[in-house]
Design a protein around this nucleic acid. Structure first.
Lengths: 202, 202
DNA sequence: AGTTTTACTAGAATAAGATTCTAGTTTAAG
DNA sequence: CTTAAACTAGAATCTTATTCTAGTAAAACT
């Protein structure tokens, strides 16, 4: 695994070409059934190169996970910060998620179905860091509205599941091809549900 | 894989001892990092025996998944059938799930984190069968209440995510030790949210 | 009871695939 | 122009899933 930022040109391309290849393979054959050779073949890179960059097959999955996760959440947070009332905020979060899933099916499939990647201790740390930052972002936005009563006061850990739970669960099913209509087309339903789950009792 | 019911005594014990051992191993090391040898060791059985019963490591996971899934849903359905109004029904489903997860952490962890088992075609068929039966059970119970207006009329595929989404998403986090309070202790919050997501507009 | 059939167990042999290792090559920095 | 570090290659190895051959034992049949 490379410690510092790559100093060499073309190296970032190699790295991301491996990630792209991996995403494609994971989507075609599943994480489990993808061999590193499959990835090498698609990315046109050698064993050495692949292991230099990621250390292991799991390392590839972890990097992909982290980058995808950050990517999605940064998009959502950006939109959220444009809002200035609780209801709009909640609904925008749900809408953004539904749209992102519908437009980035490969990434979404990987992200939502890969709960059980085995994170090694330091990977776990890295992820925990990112995760904490992102959550802080959300909570900072919402806290004022809990305080002024426009949102219910609930245990902190329950907000995220209440708001994104239904959309996420539906998305999982859609990505697994168990249901047909895209999450984006049901945005309204899921964002209404989210709001009624956390709105203050007026 | 055995086609018929086992005719021989002690065979069912061997079979279920393998499943139990597998569940334990999966929980300790993760699906990925569990070797069949690990399972053999815990179950005290030979390679031949294990492969006779399940055909592959994946086969073990699939059997475990199917049995656990049926198990949980039968419990929920039984309770549901005792109810005779929509609100109670919805809330009982959520409550049952929260309690089952809190009381059967090993099984729940396996069930909720193993979205991405690669089902081979015939396994997929078997699962699809079970799954369809169970869903039919739920829908039969709910349909009348949609018709009489006590529940919203929505696309069929959205009911399940709306009702169990938040509880399930929270449960995932709890099982991954990302949050501390047990789902059972938050039943009220999740079942209220479920009901407000699907209640008819009175 | 004796024979046959079939479920089941065993563990060695094999095969597939992940990871490591050795030997470079290329680039940036001094 | 030299050196150190990033990077690439691909053969060798090591781990692990799966297959194969050879049985044992219980039920079914006569």
């Amino acid at each position: 695994m490379p410690r510092k930022h790559s100093s060499r040109s073309g190296t970032e391309e190699r790295r991301s070409s491996i990630l792209t290849a991996a995403l494609q393979c994971f989507n075609e054959h599943g994480l489990e059934n993808t061999t590193v050779q499959d990835i090498q073949l698609v990315a046109k890179c050698s064993t050495g190169s692949l292991y230099h960059h990621f250390g292991s097959k799991e390392g590839i999955a972890v990097s992909l996970f982290v980058e995808t996760f950050k990517n999605m959440n940064e998009g959502v947070l950006t939109e959220l910060e444009r809002c200035n009332d609780a209801q709009t905020g909640v609904q925008v979060v749900v809408t953004q998620i539904c749209e992102w899933v519908s437009e980035n099916t490969s990434s979404a499939r990987f992200l939502l179905q890969s709960r059980d990647i085995q994170f090694s201790p330091d990977m776990h740390l890295q992820l925990g860091q990112e995760y904490g930052d992102i959550m802080r972002g959300y909570f900072q936005w919402f806290t004022p509205f809990v305080e002024d009563g426009s949102m219910k006061s609930l245990p902190l850990d329950t907000y995220v599941p209440l708001i994104i739970g239904p959309a996420q669960e539906y998305s999982r099913r859609w990505l697994a091809k168990q249901v047909a209509r895209s999450p984006a087309s049901l945005t309204r339903i899921f964002s209404d549900a989210a709001w009624s789950a956390v709105r203050g009792d007026v």
